[in-house]
Design a protein around this nucleic acid. Structure first.
Lengths: 136, 136
DNA sequence: TATTATCCTATTAAATCGATAGGAATTAAA
DNA sequence: TTTAATTCCTATCGATTTAATAGGATAATA
């Protein structure tokens, strides 16, 4: 299940992607428009800034803005920052790989086999969808 | 992320699917073979029996067995019983649909749009993979 | 009757999630 | 130079979920 953090994060990023200019948008504006708890959204945007996706400006007229063109931000990046691994099990994860301790032979594991297929497909979608695609 | 319950459940089902005969297999046999906590596995198999996937027999020589031919058990069934919804958000779920309370217009929602694609692909894989496929 | 299993309910420790609180730091405008 | 607006940061909290364990009830076999 997708966490609310991820859900809200995507909505906020799409909101920012829809801005023609790159003027800062205040947290409260986004939170009202998207029905997201202001404080919660604050922490989400902060983490997206720390991870290099957003820029921010303090003080009056401040807010958050995208650092790159929406069409250059694939959903793989967004999902990994917000939700973490795209794979459903660590043993098929590209960026967060971990061996299972119960599993002796990864090649022979049914879960591994199945979830590898799912990951490949999901990855394909996220790679080929950008923030720009979602904001049209 | 896949829960251990689901992971263990799939492994146990595949183990049972590999049995040529339909003789009952004891929990402890599976738990040792697959490195799964015996008590935890017990509760998992019990729930699979209550949901009509497994049969059981008590007492000496007892255990669990599949009620159907592995090739007639698609992973959609298995996943829904063990993990619940296949969709990453309730608003794109076929069997567990729920409206988001923050979302006014589902059609216009970027998360909905994206996760619908993911669900379609994942569903396709689960529909076209049976327990028999995984036990080869 | 003894033994071997599943059945059932309850409990628990740890982790995660979603949200909130309150003030520090910074910037723009009056 | 002051005031208002806004992000920044850390800490905390309650609720839920997860993974696992415990212990006895029930049933089947030999």
């Amino acid at each position: 299940m997708l966490s609310k953090k991820t859900k809200y994060g995507i909505k906020a990023l799409v909101y920012l992607a829809k801005q023609e200019d790159r003027m800062p948008v205040q947290i409260s504006v986004i939170s009202k428009s998207e029905n997201i708890s202001r404080k919660f959204l604050e922490s989400i945007l902060l983490s997206l800034r720390k991870n290099g996706l957003l820029g921010s400006k303090k003080g009056k007229g401040g807010g958050y803005y995208l650092l790159k063109d929406p069409k250059d931000i694939p959903m793989t990046t967004v999902m990994r920052l917000l939700e973490g691994p795209i794979a459903m099990v660590p043993c098929v994860s590209l960026n967060f790989y971990e061996k299972c301790d119960d599993c002796l032979d990864e090649e022979a594991c049914a879960v591994n086999k199945l979830m590898l297929k799912v990951r490949d497909n999901t990855l394909d979608i996220f790679r080929n969808t950008t923030l720009a695609d979602l904001s049209n």
